[in-house]
Simulated scan of single mutants.
Amino acid sequence: MENWESKHIVFFDGDCGVCNFWVQWILERDRKDKFMFASLQSDFGQRFLSERGLETQVFNTIYLWKPGQYYLVKSKAILKIAELLGGVYSLSAIGKILPALLSDKAYDIVSKNRMKLANQKCYLPDQHQKKKFIQV
């Protein structure tokens, strides 16, 4: 396993097809190797949630964590991921002009309906991508 402490860690619902689609999307665009991933249901994900006093049984929120620096949730996490991917994706920074209350409301609507939107295809990461998933 790679050194996760120097990466940005994306915590996601491992049972959600939409979430898994977006993890795959990030993996394919992470040219600078900035991200690692952990499902919220994993031991690592559960520890992350517990240590911050966050809900440990409801997995409808994405978290982006830079160890020792910050963690972001919902729309702020998504905008930061796009910024870190760089290139054309950094243009999404324009989304920061929206109040978090409004962008998080849009996030919540998608999150609430994500299981209906999910195409339940099974994604299997390649060998390089497998190193980016935190299991412990």
Rank of each mutant, 00 (worst) to 15 (best):
E2C: 06
E2F: 13
E2Y: 11
N3K: 07
E5W: 12
S6H: 03
S6D: 14
I9E: 03
V10I: 07
F11T: 12
F11I: 05
F11G: 08
G14L: 13
D15K: 08
C16M: 04
G17C: 04
G17T: 01
C19H: 01
N20P: 07
N20H: 07
N20D: 09
W22F: 10
V23H: 09
Q24D: 14
I26C: 06
L27T: 13
E28Q: 15
E28R: 13
R29V: 04
D30M: 10
D30P: 04
R31F: 02
K32T: 03
D33N: 11
F35P: 10
M36R: 12
M36H: 11
S39V: 15
L40H: 01
Q41C: 02
Q41F: 01
S42K: 08
D43I: 05
G45P: 02
G45D: 05
R47F: 08
R47G: 13
F48V: 06
F48Y: 09
L49G: 07
S50T: 05
E51Y: 03
E51L: 05
R52L: 11
G53Q: 02
G53S: 01
G53L: 02
G53F: 00
L54W: 09
L54V: 14
E55I: 00
T56M: 11
Q57S: 14
Q57N: 03
F59K: 04
T61W: 01
I62R: 06
I62K: 04
Y63M: 02
W65Y: 07
P67N: 10
G68W: 08
G68N: 07
Q69M: 15
Y70A: 05
Y71S: 09
Y71Q: 11
Y71E: 13
L72W: 12
L72P: 10
V73R: 15
V73S: 15
V73A: 14
K74E: 14
K74V: 15
A77W: 00
K80T: 15
E83W: 07
E83M: 04
L85P: 10
V88Q: 10
L91P: 00
L91K: 00
S92W: 07
S92T: 08
I94P: 06
I94K: 03
I97Y: 13
L98N: 09
L101Q: 14
L101I: 14
S103E: 03
D104W: 04
Y107G: 01
D108H: 08
D108L: 02
I109S: 11
I109Y: 08
S111G: 01
K112H: 12
N113P: 02
N113D: 08
R114L: 00
R114I: 01
M115T: 11
K116S: 07
K116E: 03
L117Q: 02
L117P: 04
A118M: 06
N119P: 00
K121V: 14
C122D: 12
Y123K: 08
L124K: 06
P125S: 03
Q127I: 08
Q127K: 09
K130S: 06
K130N: 04
K130F: 02
K131A: 00
K131D: 00
K132E: 00
I134G: 08
Q135T: 07
V136L: 11
